[in-house]
Nucleic acid binder design. Structure first.
Lengths: 208, 208, 208, 208
DNA sequence: AATGAATGAGATTTCATTCAT
DNA sequence: AATGAATGAAATCTCATTCAT
């Protein structure tokens, strides 16, 4: 890692361009960032490669994202939106979902988000002094899961739901990784799904 | 001159020390490496910090471990020994273990190895071109788990055991991470244990 | 992080500068590299000194030449151009040259290229796993010489010309070194010229 | 290059062991040094590899040769002895040698010294601030050659002989290199021999 | 005498970030 | 807005040499 110290001044978040060409540029840059981070992990992804993949130059990248961390935050913000929507769709149906349906809905939620979710997991996994923004994202995901559980099984205690969410988030990330490694049809993938199903069946039994 | 060309010929792994002080130094260096890697992850751990934590200089570190990768391999070799022993202890009792006992034996196996296992997980998780050595370690762990399952439930198909092992290894690593984050008494820890228990109960039922 | 793993993908040779100041910088860097390599030899020449001599920092040097080897290749590419031109000028007159004129044309060819040729010889002499690029340069020089010989004495067999070229290249490099050491007027320089002349006279006699 | 500064105290040359085992050790170390320097060149040869090739350790090597330069000097001293003898053998016959015989005697002199002469050439070629010792060796070789020439052709002026020696030494080193590269039977080797023959024939004609 | 661990300066290379144009 | 060159701290690795045992 080179000098990570933020030498930068007061500029904080990402600049939001008003004009069309700028918007397209930003979209291309974020897509490129997603791809590179997914491939290499956050720390190993270099700003130069991200820019190059978008057909741009570092200067351009820094024009919109004043630091690597700002880029990460912008990505996370985008992921949050996507994840929010995914949960919203599940939550609509949550109260009426059977255990098997709930299992699939949750466990496939991350894996179903293409192609960003690999970068998302990489970002979540990356240390880098555990930036506050990433913790928030993680907490938001946990709250989402807990809420979905509660919607499905209102009798579930809030704290229990929260603890279960921690486990389920692990499973969701594992599913993403396993699908990437073995493909959707792998036997291990089926086992992970089955484990999640029997777990939810057991925990939500009396409550549903 | 510091050209990176491999010049020394076939020197591959770590140099084994021949004198008492060297042995102690190597032990101290590996301990320091474990600690730093556990804290920062493999890529972010610097050779300088590892050496410093052992009260040594980089030159000393490189005297025993000719590269960062060689250090990683030496650590993995040590972990392999420890993990082998842990599995051997479980396997002695495996045929007679109840599902609950088997669950605990497996899920606590990694977490029970102190203090190295955090570094072990970090090493397993690190990318760095997925070095062959780390893949082997992973495969060995999977085989260990599959064997333990088969010892407990001989009727289990070999392939099924293998697929279950993939899932269980995920759980074991998650347990390690969660204990490190929340402590042993955390509610999430209990949930992970419970999930593993009901999963094993469900899969080993008819077979035991 | 400074892992040596090739991460940037296929970037091989030198980056060609796109702006005026860059072009000048690159020219200054290559000149500095020539000078330092000429003085110290390739291996002993350090990137830091090369950069410093051009009034730049290592980072700048690496901006244009991603490795020391890439810098060497860029230099060789430039030398190739210069040498090609020098041979082209000789070859125009080659058919009509007397032995004495041919001797002078060849033996002074390298020595006449100022100031790069000392670095060129240093590069040619340097080991460093005998990089393919340098072998190619050497082969090209041999072919040039053989062609010039054949132009002057068409009856010369291709293989003989090739073997003579090996000897003449030695003489050309020796001339460069001796001029650098003793100056143009040295008695040894005259002897080398004379040796080359009687050799060519003897070999090209019946053929010319 | 690491810290090349001689931090050492007043110890200068190599220690000469009195006991048999010491003598054998020294011989083995010098042989190993010759081999490694021949393979890699002087600068790239490391003290550790030299020691290892002799089945010894750096400490041992430094016991007998207090620095790398001292080792180089010891090697040169040995070479001087060998070269002195070789010239003595030639000089006995020198007055009666025909031009062809003189050519062969000189041009094969270095190449005929096995296996040290490659290291010798490497040492002679290496820069390393052009140590005085190596310059002396070179000068001694030049004087040897000049003397042999004068013995064969007493009418030759002293200065002319000296200038011719410079050229002939180049040829002798080139022969060594070419034999190493193409083998004894190469066409280029024959050309080099022929060039040397016609040169000597031309220069020594009236004088012999 | 011999061993082999320790030292530390220095080399190559990487990369986030800045800034003049 | 965009470009791309410049910066410089930091990381990995090397190696001649010293020194305690």
């Amino acid at each position: 890692m080179a000098s990570n110290k933020s030498r930068g001044g007061p500029r904080r978040g990402a600049v939001e361009p008003r004009r069309r060409p700028g918007k397209e540029r930003v979209a291309a840059l974020m897509e490129a960032a997603s791809a590179v981070i997914a491939e290499r992990g956050f720390e190993a992804a270099t700003m130069a490669e991200i820019a190059a993949r978008a057909g741009a130059l570092v200067g351009s990248l820094y024009h919109f994202f004043p630091s690597k961390e700002a880029l990460a935050e912008a990505l996370i913000r985008r992921y949050e939106g996507i994840v929010d929507e995914a949960f919203a769709r599940v939550d609509e149906r949550a109260p009426t979902l059977s255990v098997g349906e709930l299992t699939d809905a949750l466990i496939d939620l991350l894996a179903g988000i293409q192609p960003e979710s690999r970068a998302m997991v990489a970002l979540l996994e990356s240390r880098a002094e555990w930036s506050a923004r990433r913790m928030e994202f993680r907490d938001a995901a946990l709250q989402h899961i807990a809420r979905t559980l509660s919607l499905n099984s209102p009798a579930l205690g809030a704290e229990t739901a929260r603890h279960m969410a921690v486990v389920l988030l692990h499973n969701m990330k594992a599913m993403k990784a396993m699908v990437a490694e073995y493909g959707e049809a792998g036997g291990a993938v089926a086992e992970l799904r089955e484990m999640t199903r029997v777990y939810l069946a057991s925990r939500l039994r009396g409550t549903g």
